[in-house]
Every structure is written in structure tokens, then in C-alpha cells.
Amino acid sequence: MLTVSMNVNGNSATHEVPDNTLLVTFLRETLGLTGTHVGCDTSQCGACIVHLNGESVKSCSLFAAQADGAKITTIEGIADGDTLHPMQQAFHENHGLQCGFCTPGMVMSAIELVTKNKNLTERDIREGLEGNICRCTGYHNIVKSIQAAAEKMS
């Protein structure tokens, strides 16, 4: 067991966990933040994407211990009270989801993509989503959502 401390969505969290606890397990099971999903569990699908110090990472492929001292943002941490994040709002308005399972990862991945890159083309967005899989194959509206959010966020 070891003690892990991190800042999650603005709150500090310190817990004693088994050494090999994955970050996603820490978020979901220790902290009860189940918005971050476990899809493939083999670091391919991206449903578990969160931000670690502002960068998108697959939380199923990281030990919680590696995030010790880091600032973590999950899907629960991006809205401002009742006001959705522009990316969430854009997914809502453009029907950027079907079953919704991949959505938390899509939104977290897209926020980093839009924050890091200006003037994204549709192709840039499609390529930028290479680490996210939508099993409903609903990519069309996901891309539209990200285009809409990119305009609002710029």
C-alpha cells in the first residue's frame, strides 16, 4: 500500500491504495467519480481519458502513483456549476452522442485538441480523435460538435 495525493477537479484527494492501483480505478472506485469510463481496458478506446496537468491521458494505462502530486481534471470537473463547458454544450446541441459511453473520453480529448490547436480543419479533428473509439460509429456528429465548440472556445 502507498499513499497517493492529487488534486482532482479542484479538490485535494489523499488515500492509501495498493501500489498497482490504476488511475482510473482510483478515480472511479476510491473517489466515486464514475463519469470516467472503462471501455476496452487496453488503452485503445479512450473512454477513460482525463487531463493530467492539462494534458489528455488514458487513465487505464497509468498507475495512480504516477499521478501523485498532479492536477487531474475529469468530466465531472469541466462544467461551471450548472453551466456546461462549451464542449459539453456543443455535444448536447449537435447530438454528438448515441449511447454516450465514449462521450466523457471524447469530450476530454476534444478539449485538449481544441485548446492546443487553432484553426482546426475537419480532417485535423478526425485525425485528432485517433485515440477515441465510438462503438456506435457516431463520429459525424462528434466531429460537428467539436467544430462548433472550437468556434466558441477560440
Partner: peptide, 9 residues
């Protein structure tokens, strides 16, 4: 290499 998340780690 890989995808953006892999390249971040």
C-alpha cells in the same frame, strides 16, 4: 506514434 494520449506519456 500511437495516438495523442500515447504521445503525451
Amino acid at each position: 506514434i500511437g495516438d495523442r494520449q500515447v504521445r503525451n506519456r
